[in-house]
Amino acid sequence: MILDEWKRLYSNTKTNFREVAIKGIMMAFYVLVFCFSASTGKRKASAHYILGWSFALNGVAPPLDYALLPKPPPKEKHSQSFPWIKVIIGMMSPLTFTLLCLFLYVTLYKRYTVFETLEDWEMDCPHRFRYRDLHLATKGFVESQLIGVGGFGSVYKGVLPRTGTEVAVKRILRTPAKGMREFASEIESLGRLRHKNLVNLQGWCKHKNDLLLVYDYIPNGSLDSLLFSRSFVLDWDQRFRILKGVAVGLLYLHEEWEQVVIHRDVKSSNFLIDGDFNAHLGDFGLARLYSKTTFKDL
């Protein structure tokens, strides 16, 4: 209807252009009044409803009776607005964070922890010391803690930081041809032996290229250092006690234990003398174990 009115006005050449402009403005006003915005989309789209209207071409439009207007249709609820979705998201967030932290912990633990397969000799002597404790006990294996040097390594005096116990730590020289063999042999043989005339093996440690054995600390050192000492001379009672200890220790190895232990390196430097001048046989790096039936056949 509005379009027809525009055509009639402009087709009449006798029409006053002022009148045409005024009517054009009024028609544009009517167009603006009756237009409204809308949006499309299935989700999260705004809805616009015309519940009633009132207008007049000439004069004032009659008022609307709001009580007679219909109610708008109910708002549709999408699945995304359900409250249980928010509950699930709230529960999954801390669980996901916990699993992520656990995954990172396991990954870093496997990366920086060296897992080693325990061998038979390790199972026989399960007391394994931490390398850090032995490093602190010997003050970093400094030369001032060195108390002896043998064919298979050096011996250091140490004090365990946790208990304050004095120990002797033997650091075995490891080469491709030897070292590990003597280390395993000494643990396998001495780790199960318990006798008053044998050096007591407290435990062991294997860390990278370091092979360490931990013994009871015996204060008077080796027998050879006492025999050739110029500042100290053993009397005959002390010598007899030492000889008796040597004989009793070898008797235990050869006959009294469940197997026959052949030391194969019996010498004065491998006998350690305690404060009461009792002898303790040590350094079982070359020792071999035999069953008693096999040893009789040899």
Rank of each mutant, 00 (worst) to 15 (best):
H195A: 01
F183R: 00
Y217M: 07
L193T: 08
H195W: 11
V167A: 03
V199S: 01
A168I: 04
Y215F: 14
R230D: 14
K157Q: 15
F228Q: 11
F183T: 07
A168S: 14
I187D: 07
R162D: 14
D224I: 05
H207C: 11
K196A: 15
H195Q: 10
L198F: 02
P176G: 12
F228L: 13
G221K: 10
C205I: 02
V214A: 06
G158V: 08
G179C: 06
C205G: 06
K208D: 15
L190C: 09
V167F: 01
R162I: 09
V159W: 05
M180F: 11
K208P: 03
K178M: 06
Y215S: 02
I172A: 01
I218V: 15
V167R: 02
D216C: 00
K157E: 13
R174C: 13
S225G: 00
N220W: 01
L234W: 00
P176R: 07
L212F: 03
N209F: 02
K157V: 07
C205A: 09
I172G: 02
L227V: 10
G191W: 12
R181Y: 00
V214R: 00
R171T: 06
Q202H: 12
F228K: 06
K208R: 15
R194V: 12
G221L: 10
R194P: 05
S222D: 15
F232K: 14
S185H: 05
G203D: 04
T175R: 14
L213K: 05
F228Y: 14
D224H: 02
S231T: 15
L160I: 12
D210I: 01
V167G: 09
V159M: 14
A168C: 13
D235M: 09
D216T: 08
T175F: 08
K206I: 03
L198M: 00
E166L: 10
A184Q: 15
G221D: 08
A184R: 15
E166F: 05
L173T: 14
K196M: 14
N197R: 12
K157I: 08
K206T: 07
L213R: 04
H195R: 09
G164E: 10
L223R: 04
H207T: 04
V199I: 10
F228T: 01
S225P: 01
V214D: 04
F232I: 13
L213S: 09
L190Q: 12
T165Y: 04
L226D: 06
K178S: 15
L211N: 12
G203L: 00
I218P: 06
L213M: 07
L227Y: 08
L193N: 08
E166P: 00
F228I: 06
L160D: 10
P219C: 08
R192W: 03
F228A: 10
R162G: 04
I187Y: 02
R194S: 14
L173V: 09
A177R: 10
L190F: 05
L193M: 14
L234C: 10
E188P: 09
V169N: 05
V233L: 11
D235Q: 11
N200V: 02
L160R: 05
D224Y: 08
L198Q: 04
K208M: 12
G191L: 13
T163L: 06
G191Y: 02
R192S: 13
K157Y: 13
L193H: 07
T165G: 00
G164M: 09
L190T: 10
K208A: 12
K196C: 13
T165P: 00
S225M: 03
W204G: 01
Y215K: 03
G179L: 11
M180I: 09
P176Q: 09
R194I: 13
R230S: 15
S229P: 06
T165E: 15
